[in-house]
Design a protein around this nucleic acid. Structure first.
Ligand SMILES: [Zn+2]
Ligand SMILES: [Zn+2]
Ligand SMILES: [Zn+2]
Ligand SMILES: [Zn+2]
Lengths: 145, 145
DNA sequence: ACTCCTATGAGACAGTGTATCATCTTAAAA
DNA sequence: TTTTAAGATGATACACTGTCTCATAGGAGT
């Protein structure tokens, strides 16, 4: 098994132990399904995927597990101005960004280039008319450390 | 009245005319409330604010008007990984970005500095531990133009 | 006044996510 | 091994955001 997944698993185990929780079949199924999913996913997609590829786990447990994995730093939220939450796991994260069409909601994904200015010409070249951009940092604030 | 608001109003009028729609009392109330709101706002906040400061407009109309103003380019969506949609108007937009704490959800807002690399030290100095960032462009894709 | 088209509000509805609670499991304690 | 306590789970009720439908109201032109 991928060494990086094992590392993520340890992250989760550390978190669970710290909280006095156990790695149960349910939690493991959610973890496995998340690791098997590449790119972004919505919680409800995971509910379906989990029923299909792993054991049958209830929605309640899946949502609970997602919150735990978020706290554990195994997944992170991604925000695209959509109605429902999206997540992606962290372990194979190649830093990338998104351009979203405000009309149809389509996404273009592209790798990180280091400097902001380089993206615009690239997008315009693809016929994407840039209206603006937002830089969104995520992390842990002073009070929460 | 602020010259910039008049300009935004024209934007909206142009859009409505183009679509064969009228600037009614309802639409005007929503527009006014949006312009009177600074920073980000959620649709439901606007529903409350509209009832309070403007005439009583139904939720249905408010949501409809928001969609129109979005299409007209008077407001834009902002995405922070929350359950519900956020908006802000464009007219007094000083380009700014956000850092969000993944634990408590608190935001730090800060002005645009042009280059990505400059933000990290600034945030770390404030005690914010950066885990990552996302660059999010919005605009209109090739197919939708 | 008549007609057509848009505008509106009430309420039903759908999707996502949370809270509750009774039941089941597990692991430790006796 | 039984007992016991804590965590885990699933069913279900619930809350919230947003959309859709439909009946009615309103406005502009004839
Ligand atoms: Zn992505
Ligand atoms: Zn598009
Ligand atoms: Zn902002
Ligand atoms: Zn915090």
């Amino acid at each position: 098994m991928d060494q990086r997944i094992i590392k993520e698993r340890h992250k989760l185990l550390r978190y669970l132990e710290e909280k006095g929780l156990r790695l149960t079949k349910g939690r493991e199924s959610v973890f496995n399904e998340v690791m098997a999913t590449h790119g972004h996913f919505a919680a409800e997609e995971l509910v379906k995927g989990c029923k299909e590829h792993q054991r049958d786990v209830s929605r309640a447990t899946i949502y609970r597990s997602l919150r735990e994995m978020l706290e554990a730093g195994v997944i992170r939220e991604t925000a695209f101005g959509e109605k429902h939450q999206h997540y992606e796991h962290v372990y194979d994260e190649t830093l990338h960004h998104h351009a979203r069409c405000v009309r149809c909601g389509t996404f273009i994904e592209f790798d990180d280039l280091g400097e902001e200015d380089r993206y615009r010409p690239l997008l315009e070249k693809q016929g994407f008319k840039v209206l603006g951009h937002e830089l969104h940092f995520y992390g842990i604030c002073h009070a929460c450390q």
